[in-house]
Structures are given as C-alpha cells and as structure tokens.
C-alpha cells in the first residue's frame, strides 16, 4: 500500500492506495501521530484508490476519531468503493465518522468555497 500524507489548506490530507492490511497499520499510525503532533486536528482521507481494509485497519480510524474528539477535531473519509464501503457499514464506522462521496463535498463541509 502507498500512503501519501500532505497538508492541504488547514487539514491533513491522506491518500491511501492499494491494500490496507496488517503490514501498513504501524506506518499509517506513525504518519497520523506526526500529523497530530505538528499539524491540524482536521483529517481528510482519500479512499478512492483504497482496494482493501480489514478490522485492524478500521481500528486505526476508530482510535483516531477517539483522539480527535478530545481536540474538537474532524475526521472524514471520501470516495469509498463499494467493497470497502460494505466493510465500513458492517463495522458501523459510518456512524462514527463522516463518509463523503467527493473531495468537493468535504471542502464544502469544511467551509471552503469551490
């Protein structure tokens, strides 16, 4: 899997590409920890190229959401494919964080004019 982490406007933008399996949990967690320490508490994850996620991967987002609650942070994911979306829905992660269809929708929610 390829993890790309950048700062866009006032939020942390992560793109996840490929299969998010057990090997990449520590790597993504390190990137998230860095962003939490030095960056904004707004996190946006682009899932458009994410092909696979399991319960360990879902847990990374549960943990992040819990941490962000303490800082009035913001976590959203967008462009989730049907297979990954099914796992997110069964896990009830969709009840815990925002799931949007596009970056445009995310930007509008964050108050940016497109």
């Amino acid at each position: 899997m390829k993890i790309t982490a950048t700062q866009v406007q006032s939020f942390n933008y992560f793109q996840l590409e490929g299969k998010f399996n057990i090997d990449y949990i520590a790597e993504l967690q390190t990137e998230i920890d860095k962003a939490m320490k030095y960056g904004s508490k707004f996190f946006v994850f682009d899932f458009s190229k994410l092909e696979y996620i399991n319960s360990s991967g879902i847990r990374v987002f549960i943990k992040l959401q819990k941490e962000l609650k303490l800082f009035d942070g913001f976590l959203t994911i967008f462009a989730v494919n049907d297979k990954v979306s099914n796992i997110i829905n069964i896990s009830e992660l969709n009840n815990l964080l925002r799931v949007k269809s596009s970056l445009k929708e995310v930007m509008l929610e964050l108050g940016y004019k497109i």
């Binding site: 399991n54 319960s55 360990s56 879902i58 847990r59 959401q65 069964i90 009830e92 992660l93 009840n95």
Partner: peptide, 22 residues
Amino acid sequence: PKEVKLEEKEVGGLGIHLVKNL
C-alpha cells in the same frame, strides 16, 4: 448490541463481527 459504541468494543471483537456478517 447496537447501543455499545464502536470505540468501546474490544480488540478482536470487530474481526469476529465482520466474519459473522460476511
């Protein structure tokens, strides 16, 4: 049960939940 928040479910439980549902 649904009313138990996702973040309060123990490690391992989520994987089993997925297996049962899929």
